[in-house]
Amino acid sequence: MSEAVSRLVTGGGRRWLVPLAWSSLLLAACVGMPWLEGLFRLVEPDSRSVVYARADFLTLLGRHLLVVAVAALAAVAIGVGAAVAVTRRAGRDFLPLVAQLASIGQTFPPVAVLALAVPVLGFGTLPIIVALLLYGLLPIVRNTLTGLEGVDPGVREAARGMGMTGGQLLRQVELPLAAPVILAGIRTSVTINIATAAIGATVGASNLGDPIISGIVNGNTAYVLQGALLIGLLALTVDSVFARLQPAAA
């Protein structure tokens, strides 16, 4: 932890300036929204309340992040695991099917997946996590496959020649070489999931999509703007973090 902090302060710290700026803006917007009441009053002069008050913005942000993070972590574990499994000798038989499934599955619109998950899983937070997890798997599996298949066979040969076992080869050679592509897949997956989780507010998950949906239903543009602003900032924050991680891994 302290090492990470010191690295942040010195040397590479400046690279984290952009994500830091976005995240402080996001937090400031969450905390300071009530002070902008006058501004929102301009948009919505006739409404009784112009700042969404049914739940605290920080709580909504926390729930949004939690849903996305749980789904993303599970999707990374399962997705990378599955892609590694089908590129080993024992699982090689499954490779064509998994590769095709990951590619066909990505044509499914996320909204349709979310909608189809509800009849099966019901309303609430858990169905959304499952739907996000299932959909988020696809780009991760696909990119991990691309990354692992892209490793130069010569490199693999050389590592074997040095006496590496299969596990060592995977951990020390294949995964590090494939890391940038895998990370790009995770980035796609998380970006889509942040957007889809917001739509999840229509199926009973309480998160930053709530103010938007409630604003649309009640015709309160101010609510809509608040939710949209925060989701936009959240997406930009997370994306900037990935943008920083990516060249570091390359």
Binding site: I194, A195, I199, T221, V224, A228, L229, A235, L236
Partner: peptide
Amino acid sequence: NFLQTIPSLALFGLLLAPLA
């Protein structure tokens, strides 16, 4: 790229006020 990062629901929402 910036536009693509903004979630669809948020973009629809942000367009609502100026267009109205």
